[in-house]
Structure formats: structure tokens, C-alpha cells
Design a protein around this nucleic acid. Structure first.
Length: 116
DNA sequence: CACCTGACTGAAT
DNA sequence: AATTCAGCCAGGT
């Protein structure tokens, strides 16, 4: 693993339920690093060698598929989301407010951090 | 070893 | 309301 931080990011991302999405910021905040959302995105970029990480369920805070270019094709990420019942129009997740999954509201932060 | 860049974000201008 | 700035961390040059 590249680093402990990356490992934490992957663990959280893997916990995102099918058909739901989360954001770089939410994950960063959940990990206690608050403003390191960029690094979360960077971790996603490095997650290519780890197929168990559903990186397509992680988008930016507006629900925009900013990382779709890194999926090999322009519609790959969108298709993956669509296959889980998520509608994407113009690179934006529809009904994003209802679909977003905030780790802070569903997981025990301290327990998670201790489990590393 | 110093500098640059990036799948981000929130505050400041 | 739109744009810029500064933090954040890791990896590449």
C-alpha cells in the first residue's frame, strides 16, 4: 500500500453502499484530515491497481463526475453508476442530495480510525 | 533535495 | 454571484 492514508480512503470507499455515492470532502472529513480532499482524489487515482475500490461512487461535492476521464472512457464511470440505478446527466448525478452517503452519518468514526 | 502538480473545498475577495 | 487563494498530502521531476 502506498500509505496508511490511502489505505484509510480505500476502506471507506469500499463501505459505500451500491447505488449510493459519496464525496472527496466527506471522506476526508471522516478520516479526520478535514481539508485533504485533494489527497482523497489522488488516492482514487492510485486505486487503479485495486479493483475492489468502487471509485465511481466518489464524486466532488456538487455530484459532478470530475474523475470520469480516468476510467479509460468518457462513459465508463457513468455506465457503472447507471448500472447501480444512478442517473447521470451532463456529468452530474441527478438527485444527488438524496443519493449522497455521508460516512459521518453511517459509520463510527473513532471506531474506524482505531481499527487501522 | 526543492519545486510542481492534482479525481477538492471552503473562505475570502 | 463569480473568481481567486490557500491549505491539505503524496508522488513525480
Amino acid at each position: 500500500m502506498a500509505s496508511e492514508f490511502f489505505d484509510r480512503v480505500y476502506r471507506v470507499v469500499r463501505l459505500i453502499p451500491e447505488g449510493r455515492v459519496s464525496t472527496y470532502g466527506h471522506i476526508a472529513r471522516f478520516l479526520g484530515t478535514g481539508r485533504s480532499a485533494r489527497v482523497v482524489g489522488y488516492a482514487m487515482n492510485a486505486s487503479h491497481n485495486d479493483p475492489s475500490v468502487p471509485a465511481h461512487r466518489v464524486v466532488n461535492r456538487k455530484g459532478l463526475l470530475t474523475g470520469k476521464h480516468f476510467f479509460g472512457g468518457s462513459t465508463v464511470m457513468e455506465d457503472l453508476l447507471a448500472s447501480e440505478g444512478i442517473t447521470v446527466v451532463n456529468d452530474e448525478i441527478q438527485n444527488f442530495g438524496e443519493l449522497v452517503w455521508d460516512p459521518m452519518e453511517h459509520l463510527d468514526q473513532e471506531e474506524f480510525l482505531e481499527s487501522i
